[in-house]
Write a protein that binds this DNA or RNA. Structure first.
Lengths: 146, 146
DNA sequence: TTAATTTAAGACAAATTAGTCTGAAATAGA
DNA sequence: TCTATTTCAGACTAATTTGTCTTAAATTAA
């Protein structure tokens, strides 16, 4: 079981954060990304194509081509990526799997999980990729990419 | 994508809670469980056999046979079930999928997620099946089963 | 003892997710 | 212009998860 996000989504999040670390205007190839992040080449290719199609990334073919953020890093949140890849089911599904579970018909942990879900949502929404890139640039984070 | 728990695990949690509602000493058949909980018959059978093998349930063959809790309802928590079915990876895996992520090498949401993960853990551990059954007996919960 | 009921066990099938491979199209640089 | 590089597109394979089917074994009640 992957936790909360699909493998594909994890890869997407990692790749986008990596791109956010690059100086604006530079293109990064799949080759570099897969090498640094240890993600299967063609699998990542498809993921990035998908994000490009949805406007979160931009791409360019040919030599010195590659991928870059499709909009300003401060306008992209983790939630944008999760939404594009996994969808937002986790924001409204019962954690115990009861299809009837709702505010009117709460399961035994409905309210507790509701609070946590909200926190997860805030975590994904409140921090944009620019801020995260800044944190990742601190020495203690660099090792993920250098 | 299922959220946090696998489908199998959700089914297990629902079934165990259902069993906890039954008077001690009574056996409940798979037939009744699948009918009430809307879970595929043979799939649930395998899940319950697994939980029985691990001691969380007890079973009896033959007419008027079925399944019952394998220990006192107050000694079983949601965590026991999750642990038995999905394992406990979610307690130590990076939510962004970084294999190197740790307290020493935190990812950008390591600490935030750490707090939430701990809350989820508490939610699963702090409430036993007996307490939950009690809540489920309140009229507003009964509809899940009646 | 016999028949009906129920779990036990394991093979099998379907669906989903993850990953691979090949060739085409675009682009930049020599 | 030609070649190397890179994304694009889609078919294909592999692995995992979910779900089905069949038969055996145990148990109970008639």
């Amino acid at each position: 079981m992957s936790i909360l996000f699909s493998r594909q989504c994890e890869y997407a999040l990692q790749a986008v954060m990596y791109l956010a670390l690059k100086p604006a205007g530079t293109m990064t190839s799949i080759k570099e990304l897969t090498k640094r992040l240890n993600i299967p080449y063609h699998f990542l290719a498809k993921i990035l194509q998908n994000l490009t199609y949805k406007g979160l990334l931009s791409s360019q073919k040919g030599q010195s081509g590659g991928f870059a953020l499709g909009m300003s890093a401060k306008d992209i949140t983790l939630f944008h990526i999760v939404e594009a890849i996994d969808g937002v089911d986790f924001t409204n599904k019962c954690i115990l799997g009861f299809s009837e579970c709702s505010g009117k018909n709460p399961c035994a942990v409905h309210n507790k999980w509701g609070v946590m879900r909200e926190q997860i949502f805030e975590m994904l929404v409140n921090k944009n990729i620019a801020q995260m890139a800044k944190e990742m640039k601190k020495p203690e984070y660099r090792q993920f990419f250098d």
